[in-house]
Amino acid sequence: MSINVEELFESKLAKNDVIEPKDWMPDNYRKHLIRQISQHAHSEIVGMLPEGNWITRAPSLRAKLVLLAKVQDEGGHGLYLYTAAESLGTSRDELLDALHTGKAKYSSIFNYPTLTWADIGAIGWLVDGAAIMNQVMLQRTSYGPYARAMVRICKEESFHQRQGYEVMTKLSFGTPEQKEMAQDALNRWWFPTLMMFGPPDIESPNSDNAIKWRIKRESNDQLRQRFVNQTITQIEYLGLTCPDTNFKWNEAKKGYDFSEPNWVEFKSVINGNGPCNKERLEASNKAHKDGEWVRAAAMAFADKQNETTIAA
């Protein structure tokens, strides 16, 4: 009796079972996951740059230690995700090549500049906060390696958000200049953060596959609404003002009505015209190119030692 692999795959999904690397899977599932997981990985790696920007200028030794640890975590997250993507039949070289040639996307939020120390607080608080919301449900996604990577990532992520909010708190309750710095950062990062949940539902409805494959449970707008609801209280505690002057409590839906971000700006940043797209890609490419001789030397050394047995 031969097993119908397609039926096996569908029945696993129906039972909320996990798909592992050696299982048969349809092409569209494999391709979708490679793209989604690798873009998630690219986001983590590129995300090291705007924050890494402030490591050498962190204003206290403790802040420096915390920021270094955070950026290191992000690198680690990228790493877990690259290897999860590789298990689907691609190589990190191919994935990096797609990033460096601009073929692959990464989260648009990292194309904005970190202009002041307060931006570091805003990123940890808002950007990581939004990421957490997007990521929590992926811990039970259908593809095993992805789910396991997400469990690790989510465990580490809450330290990041708390780090960011701690910076914002110190600034908001500090000197007038510090408070102004905090308000200015919030003004610039609020709407781009809302964009992280993706375009409005009417433009990008959840596909059946996204639900069946346990990649998405809630819609973009639902997540965005939940984020706004929870963040407004946090803004109020800091004594800051949300740059959206239109938000208002809506008793009927038990949530805030708020202004949509500028979707034209979103499209233009996605298409490569944001403030830092070019700089991020340049930095990524440069590090990769500069590192080529290092990797080649390591490979040559390993070969000489007969350490590995990969076929040439």
Partner: peptide
């Protein structure tokens, strides 16, 4: 710490 984000490969 100037190397963070600019290393020769991710693990390093």
């Amino acid at each position: 710490s100037e190397w963070t984000g600019h290393g020769p490969f991710l693990e390093e």
